[in-house]
Simulated assay, not measured.
Amino acid sequence: MSKISKLAIFLAFFSLPILVFAQEKGKLEFIINDHDFGEIKEDGGPAIYEFEFENTGTAPLVISHVRASCGCTTPGWSKEPVLPGERGFVKAQYNPRNRPGNFRKSLTITTNGDPAVTHAYIRGKVLPKVKSLEEQMTLKIGNTRFMSRSVNIGKVTTEKKVVKSFDIYNDSPDTLSILEKYDAPAFIKLTFEPQILTPKQVGKVNIEYDPIHEDNLGYNNHGITIYTNEESAETKKINVLATVSEYFAPMSDEEMEKAPKLAITDRLQDLGKVNEGSKTVAEFVLTNHGLSVLNIRKVKSNCACFVAELPKENIKPGKSITLKGTFDAANRKGNQNKSITIYSNDPIDPVQVVSIKASIVAPN
């Protein structure tokens, strides 16, 4: 055997312990890596669980970092090296405050072991805190509480009147009397149940809303005023919101064929670059493809800077008119998106929208 071969065998033999030692690593294995807290209370304080693990590797295991999937989970872990065969822990703490509902969060654990990254999971359901009346009814006017400054009746049609109620709470040590008089538009009627509230009593204000009134289609915001016997805060001002659409009675196939049909060309128009302070006109062609007269009930812009001009309200079958929308770029900057909503007696598509977009540039 040559001297070179002997040297190679010698080096290979003595390097084996070094290679074996270099491959020795710790290994983190959780006893349980997924914990279910079950139901916990929102106001019950943090929920804590300690995941136990064993180092099943052949070298000391060191946890360098634990990262939670959200800030609501606070991790802790064994700081000292965990020897082979011994156990350590990773702690998870979940704060349920202001987090009602189901949750599932993860912990990402980085170590010097193999694999270098492992995961653990916590889950559960946070039961909402039962709020007091004072916490629920956040609007306080004098010693009278309401849920909100606004009462939203929601989407209604012109078919019939609707009734909506909201709570009123006497948050005082004295009796509260709700006076019979109130201020509201003629199409809003109010009644009170009861009119006299003892201390800490909840009553109801009933709103009867008639959606048939002038300029009713679309979004409506009506102010009402309730009067009480509180000397320092006699008046309580509340807003009533409603979105009204026209009601169309069921129609036969023959009636539907004869109905008006609104079609609009170029619903979205790009005005391109528009000088600040200038005015630009966008034209939209409205055509009646039906067999009856099309009546434009109302046009409403979403901005005072985009004014709609309609030459007439009625469109005969097969005829067209041009809706002009004038965009005023005064005091406007950057990209602009504006729209006009068109309400008509087309029973299939009574509410249609046309829009413009523009980019405001400084004039030369």
Rank of each mutant, 00 (worst) to 15 (best):
S2L: 08
K6P: 03
L7P: 00
L11T: 00
P17V: 02
I18D: 06
I18F: 08
L19Q: 09
A22D: 11
A22W: 13
E24M: 14
K25D: 09
K27W: 09
D34V: 02
K41I: 08
G44P: 03
P46T: 05
E50N: 13
F51T: 13
F51M: 08
N55H: 01
T56M: 05
G57C: 05
P60G: 04
S64P: 03
R67P: 02
C70F: 10
P75C: 00
K79Q: 15
E80K: 15
E86D: 13
K91Y: 05
P96F: 10
R97E: 15
R99A: 08
P100K: 06
K105E: 13
T111R: 05
N112C: 05
N112A: 10
D114W: 09
G124F: 02
K129C: 01
V130S: 12
E135L: 05
T138Y: 12
K140F: 10
R145A: 01
V151T: 05
N152E: 11
I153K: 01
G154Y: 01
I168F: 03
Y169Q: 07
Y169K: 05
D171G: 07
T175C: 08
K181E: 15
P194H: 07
T198D: 11
V202M: 13
G203N: 03
D210F: 06
P211V: 00
E214S: 10
E214L: 14
N220H: 09
N220C: 04
N221R: 12
I226E: 00
Y227S: 03
T228H: 01
T228D: 00
S232L: 14
S232H: 14
A233L: 07
T235C: 10
I238G: 02
L241T: 00
E246R: 06
M256L: 15
K258G: 08
K258R: 14
T265M: 07
K273Y: 12
N275Y: 09
G277A: 07
S278K: 05
V281Q: 07
V285C: 01
T287L: 03
N288D: 03
G290W: 00
S292R: 10
K300Q: 13
S301T: 11
C303R: 15
A308Y: 04
I315E: 01
G318A: 08
S320A: 06
F327A: 07
A329I: 06
N335L: 11
I342M: 04
I342R: 00
S344P: 06
N345V: 02
D346F: 01
P347W: 03
Q352M: 12
V353K: 15
I360A: 00
A362N: 14
N364A: 11
